[in-house]
Design a protein around this nucleic acid. Structure first.
Lengths: 159, 159
DNA sequence: GCAAAGAAGTTGCGTTCTACAACCACCGGC
DNA sequence: GCCGGTGGTTGTAGAACGCAACTTCTTTGC
């Protein structure tokens, strides 16, 4: 009567492994992100890099929305935005529909810097992942994306 | 002449997505890990939780080795170990083969606490992942594990 | 054996990031 | 026009991490 093989009969070891691997990943990637941020511009925060990445995807967005998606505090967002503007990486505009809100978008300089860093990263990444196929990598990305969406949905419904 | 479909002809978007999802994941997992650590024992560090998790898997190990696998500083490890011992979660023994090294192992109390937290986590996790099949979850864990191993191998070879 | 090189751990210090709170400016409904 | 709610700014305290100096012990070389 069970709806095929859902996680209801989950092997506890798999859950433990998931959290274990995520934990290891967290500690390993931390420095990596910091390095990438420094490559974009010396003194750039990891959070700043994340905001730039988000802007590179969405084109532009309101500061509060971006802060929400990356899970950042209001204060941290405020300071980060100021830093990004001072570095000339993002443009800061007041939303014409809401004078409280700020609309952020990548400056030409910011876009160039991100493009350059991405290109550099890509070269290193290709050497790193030489044993992987495109399909395997795509599957991993798809799984991560779905996992993120699942967690986010759960958090949103628990408001 | 290419060896089938390796990542050599990788779509740049996939790489961008991977790093994007990982970045989002890490910011989300951070709080989660902190909560889990607090659940084990108030005041417990995220690093402390990681050490406990590692000990739960390996049974016991030398402090330096654990610090290496989790990517922690010597100083951070020293402080964390003291905290874990003070909380009665781990036992601290001098390695009979090397009087400099410390051998760590979970105490009975530590094992009980970890078991309880894991059980509690598992219940929440089952509700969260109701839309997933065991196979999908296993694939994700396998992909993450392999990714971690790939990155670690690259770091190790660049010594 | 003994001296030098090096690894394991401890401790102190500075930096960085974050979470919390108080505050101002602006939108919305009544 | 007043009021609750939201976006943003600033200040502050706290935690965690990395770096470096120092001690103790092992190992290597002579």
């Amino acid at each position: 009567m069970s709806a095929a093989a859902t996680v209801a009969d989950l092997d506890p070891v798999v859950l433990g492994d998931l959290e274990h691997e995520l934990w290891l990943l967290l500690r390993r990637v931390r420095r990596n992100v910091a390095e990438r941020a420094q490559a974009v511009e010396p003194g750039l925060t990891a959070l700043g890099y994340g905001v730039l990445d988000q802007l590179l995807r969405d084109g532009s967005g309101r500061a509060a929305d971006i802060g929400c998606t990356v899970g950042a505090d209001k204060g941290a967002m405020s300071r980060t935005v100021h830093q990004l503007v001072d570095l000339g990486l993002v443009e800061r505009t007041v939303d014409p529909e809401d004078a409280r809100a700020l609309v952020l978008s990548l400056s030409e300089h910011g876009r160039d810097r991100m493009r350059e860093v991405t290109e550099h990263r890509r070269a290193r990444f290709l050497g790193l992942m030489s044993g992987w196929t495109n399909a395997e990598l795509s599957d991993l990305v798809a799984g991560l994306t779905r996992y993120n969406a699942t967690v986010e949905a759960a958090v949103a419904s628990a408001d």
